[in-house]
């Protein structure tokens, strides 16, 4: 019998003890993505505007957020702004993840909107729609559909990036693993548990995105 320094039966024993932390991870991710989608849509549309007053702030936001690490952004929101506003750790994590993802999602939406053939907008206008109606009724529904694969990818990144919230003391999966690791002296086992949780969640998310993609394909079917 090989004598390993690890006790892998601990994985099964301690696994349920991470349930609450996993729920926090899911919450940060879910609300972070929600904030990111709203910010992303607004910023993406602003980015496409011909008015500098809309387009430049959007460009600036994307430039700063994509050009600096999420970990730094979280620390600025939670520790850096303490003299200005005292944001609790959970809201700080959600805002941080949301603002960060907003920049990426904005670029996803922008690309998708630009990929819709010009004739679609023209057909809508020729029916007497206003430019806003044409965007909402004709361009955006098609752009959303086209952005689903890229959005799914971004959601998975967001889920994994939520682990950075451990750096601002949110007791999500990773922080929980480190705490449990020190108290049980079984660091690898605890980290492996967390790894299994992440893998399970990203797998479910991947499957969900796949199903949404399938469902949106109804209008593409040919006999």
């Amino acid at each position: 019998m090989l004598d390993l320094p690890w006790d892998f039966t601990a994985i099964a024993r301690y696994f349920p003890g991470f349930y609450a932390a996993a729920l926090l991870t899911l919450q940060i991710t879910f609300f972070g993505i929600l904030v990111g989608l709203v910010l992303g849509l607004v910023t993406g549309l602003m980015r496409l505007s011909t008015f500098k007053i809309l387009n430049l702030p959007a460009k600036g936001y994307i430039w700063v957020i994509r050009g600096t690490p999420l970990l730094l952004q979280l620390m600025i929101i939670y520790y850096g702004l303490i003299d200005l506003v005292n944001i609790d750790r959970m809201p700080a994590a959600i805002i941080g993840l949301g603002v960060h993802n907003g920049a990426y999602i904005a670029e996803i939406f922008r690309g998708a909107i630009q990929s819709i053939e010009r004739g679609q907008r023209e057909a809508a206008l020729s029916l007497g729609m206003t430019p806003t109606q044409a965007m909402i009724r004709v361009v955006l529904p098609q752009a959303f559909k086209r952005s689903v694969p890229a959005l799914g990818n971004q959601f998975i990144i967001a889920l994994k990036d939520s682990s950075l919230a451990s750096a601002i003391a949110v007791r999500e999966l990773l922080l929980r693993a480190r705490q449990m690791g020190s108290s049980t002296l079984m660091m690898l086992e605890m980290l492996m548990i967390v790894g299994i949780y992440y893998l399970m969640m990203t797998t479910v998310l991947t499957l969900l995105v796949g199903r949404v993609e399938k469902r949106l394909q109804v209008s593409d079917y040919r006999d």
Partner: peptide
């Protein structure tokens, strides 16, 4: 003013 296009430009999602 109705318009009919060379490439139809039907709305594929409807």
């Amino acid at each position: 003013v109705g318009m009919v296009f060379q490439h139809f430009n039907l709305f594929p999602h409807r």
